[in-house]
Amino acid sequence: MSRANAGTKGVPRADRELQIVRAACEVFGTVGFAKASVAGIAADAGISKPLVYQYFGSKEGLFSACLTHGAELLASDMERVAADDSVGLERGLRTLDGIFRILEPQPWLWRLFFDRTAPESGDVAAARAFYTDRITRLAMEGVGELMALVGDDDPLDVSAMTAVWMNVVDTLVTWWLDHPEVTPSQMTERCYRLIVALSGAEPPAQIVADPAAR
């Protein structure tokens, strides 16, 4: 993970910060906040430990930056899917496909959101709450569209199904992370089969067959 030219003079601050965050995401997402070492992260990024503190202030500040980095990637892609013409099960499948593709080169990002050793107050808690709310609202919107398609607009039904959907997503992603031999395309196809088996409804097959739709 070390980069020979990292931390040298002339590197724009934004580039250097992103370099540190990417290195830290892998460490935090692999060993957890409690076991992660700022010195080790600095070494992986090829920069000095004081520079990490100069940019992020603390280990907690660095973790907050990592959480924001990962959550922004995922939330932005979910918003991209929400802005297209897909609804219901098709939107859900496209959302899952986007998650798998983002996580393929950086699977440790997912575990940042569920790190029980991370701080439960301060900037970390604020970042987690912000993105949890943003992603939950997107999920509720998508579930609401799905429920409307079957004539159910009961707010509590939508709320309950949103909770179910978010747990399903976490379960599917966690299963996939435990099976690294499965490609994103294969996982999307598996989700398609599971959705058909459970619901009896078939989203457009092009979601899993057409690379342009991914």
Rank of each mutant, 00 (worst) to 15 (best):
E202V: 01
A201R: 12
D85F: 10
W108V: 14
T188Q: 04
T174G: 12
A71H: 05
M187S: 00
I99M: 05
L149C: 07
L112T: 04
P184T: 05
A213H: 00
V27G: 03
A129K: 12
G57Y: 00
E120D: 11
A82S: 14
T68Q: 09
G7M: 10
V124L: 06
M187C: 05
Y53S: 08
E141H: 09
V21M: 03
A45F: 12
P119H: 01
G40M: 03
T8G: 14
A126V: 13
V27I: 13
S37Q: 13
G46H: 13
D115Q: 04
E141G: 08
V169M: 15
K49R: 15
Q19N: 13
V38G: 04
V143P: 02
M187N: 02
D15R: 12
D210E: 05
L103Y: 07
D154T: 06
R214Y: 02
Y192K: 00
G200Q: 02
A125Q: 14
A42M: 09
E181S: 09
P107N: 03
M161A: 14
D153E: 15
R91K: 15
E17Y: 07
T132H: 13
P107E: 00
V87T: 14
V168S: 12
K35W: 04
D157R: 10
V182N: 05
A139P: 06
D77H: 15
G98V: 08
R137P: 01
A71K: 03
R101A: 01
A197Q: 08
G151C: 04
Q206E: 14
R137W: 02
V196T: 08
L177D: 02
H179G: 01
R13G: 03
A23M: 08
P12F: 00
W175L: 10
A42L: 08
V31Q: 14
A160E: 09
G151P: 08
G29N: 02
L18F: 03
W176I: 09
R134Q: 11
L156S: 10
G57R: 06
K49L: 02
G61W: 01
V150Q: 12
P12K: 08
H69F: 12
R91Y: 01
P211M: 04
T132D: 15
M78C: 12
D15H: 11
S48G: 13
M166D: 00
K59M: 04
F56G: 00
V208G: 11
A213C: 09
A201C: 06
R193E: 12
A213G: 09
E141Y: 05
L89S: 00
T188E: 03
D123N: 14
Y55L: 15
E202K: 07
P204Q: 05
D44C: 07
V150G: 02
E141S: 10
